[in-house]
Design a protein around this nucleic acid. Structure first.
Lengths: 140, 140
DNA sequence: CGGGATCCTTCTTGATACTG
DNA sequence: CAGTATCAAGAAGGATCCCG
C-alpha cells in the first residue's frame, strides 16, 4: 500500500498532517513491528533470540523489519566481530517512546475490545456489515 | 494505558494480550479506515460524499471498509427508502473514541516524525538499515 | 550465527461492468 | 445513488539455498 499521497480533502480533521500519521501507522500497523518492539522492551537481544521469541516470524520478515526499525532510529544494531558472529538489537529512547504510544493504543484496545467483539458477534446474527442493514422509511 | 504493565518488565511485554491489540492495529493500520473515520468526525455523510471526500478510494474499498467499521460498531449505516436512494454513515461513540486514540497516536507522530525523518535521512547516507552497521570489535 | 538473494504462493486492491 | 460481482495486477510474506 502507500502508493500516492494525495489525501487532501475538503472537510477533514487533519488536512495534510495525515502524511506522517500514516507513516507511523504503516510502521506499527505492521504485525511484526509491534511484536519485535515489545519483545525488545525487556532489553537487548540477538537475532536468534528474537527469532525464537517470536514464533511465527520468518527470517525474511525479521531481518526486514529490523532494518526498517533501525533505519527509523527505533533500535540500534550492534555486530560483534567474533568467531561465532553475534549481533545485538536494542531499543533506542525513540523506540521505547513508541512502546509507550503502542501501550496507549493497547489501553484503548483493552477497554473496548469486548465491546467490539460483541458488536461483531451481534453482526453475525443480524447480518450487519454483510448486506442487511437498518432501513428507515423515508424520513423526508 | 491502563492495565498494561511496565515497559521495563522482567519477562515479556504482552504474553497473550497482543491478540486484540493486533485486532485494533489491523483495523486502524488500514489506510482507508483512518481516512473514513476522520472524515466522518465532522458528522454523518452519505456514500457519495465519502467517496468525494476521499480522493484515492475506490468504491470497493469504501464499501468494504464501511462494512468492517459497521460490523465492529464503529459507525452506523442508515438507508432511506426514497426514490433516489440515500444512505448515511455516522460515527458511534465507540467510533469517536477510536478517533481519540488515533489522535493520540497522531500526537506521538507529530512529536517524533521529524526525528524519524532525520534518522531515516541519515541512514540513507550512512547505509544503516541497508547492510552497513555499527561494528564493535570482539567484546569478549 | 546472521543474514542476502531468489522463487513462488497468497492476499490485497484497483478497475470495470452490471443491478436495484 | 449505492452498491455487488468478477478479474487481473501487484505487493506482502514464507520457504529455500547460499555465503561470510
Amino acid at each position: 500500500m502507500a502508493s500516492a499521497r494525495q489525501i487532501s480533502g475538503p472537510c477533514q480533521a487533519w488536512p495534510e498532517d495525515s502524511a506522517f500519521i500514516r507513516e507511523v501507522l504503516d510502521r506499527i500497523g505492521d504485525k511484526w513491528t509491534v511484536l519485535i518492539v515489545s519483545t525488545l522492551s525487556d532489553g537487548s537481544l540477538r537475532y536468534s533470540d528474537l527469532q525464537a521469541s517470536i514464533p511465527g516470524i520468518s527470517q525474511r520478515m525479521l531481518t526486514q523489519t529490523l532494518k526498517h526499525l533501525e533505519r527509523d532510529g527505533l533500535l540500534t544494531r550492534t555486530a560483534f566481530a567474533e568467531v561465532p558472529p553475534r549481533v545485538e538489537y536494542e531499543l533506542t529512547d525513540l523506540g521505547r517512546s513508541l512502546m509507550g504510544a503502542v501501550m496507549a493504543m493497547a489501553g484503548w484496545a483493552a477497554t473496548h475490545h469486548s465491546e467490539i467483539a460483541s458488536n461483531r458477534a451481534a453482526s453475525e446474527l443480524t447480518g450487519v456489515g454483510r448486506g442487511k442493514t437498518t432501513v428507515s422509511a423515508s424520513a423526508g
